[in-house]
């Protein structure tokens, strides 16, 4: 076993290569995973703050003042609570909608 770690005297070169590979590959994977989670959470909270009827009918009736109150997504939270059960549905709609852009 000591022989194995010794690598014929080249231990420092061989093991730093494999160590660096581990570092780069897991680092990129973890960064990608955490970035994806963060964005999906942000998207979910944004979509929750968005009343469904406004998305469906566009800027039909209550357009202007609704737009002002929901400036940063969080402001529409009280409204969004009613639509919370529809969250999953809304996310699907958002996916297809995104496709059209």
């Amino acid at each position: 076993m000591a022989d194995f770690f010794h690598m014929g005297g080249y231990a420092i070169y061989v093991w730093s290569s494999y160590g660096l590979a581990l570092l780069v590959l897991t680092g990129l994977l973890l960064a990608s995973l955490s970035g994806l989670r963060r964005k999906e959470r942000m998207l979910a909270s944004l979509e929750q703050g968005l009343p469904r009827r406004r998305r469906r009918s566009g800027a039909a009736s209550t357009g202007d003042d609704a737009g002002l109150t929901m400036h940063h997504g969080k402001a529409g939270k009280d409204k969004g609570a009613d639509d919370a059960n529809d969250g999953g549905d809304g996310a699907d709609g958002g996916g297809d909608g995104g496709g059209g852009e």
Binding site: S32, L36, E40, L43, L50, G73, G94, G98, E101
Partner: peptide, 23 residues
């Protein structure tokens, strides 16, 4: 994973734009 994150990012931008514009 990264493409899914990028697609989510685009949706976030679109939602922010519609909300900011009130359209």
């Amino acid at each position: 994973l990264r493409m899914r994150a990028e697609l989510a990012e685009r949706k976030i931008q679109t939602l922010r734009l519609t909300q900011a514009g009130g359209v």
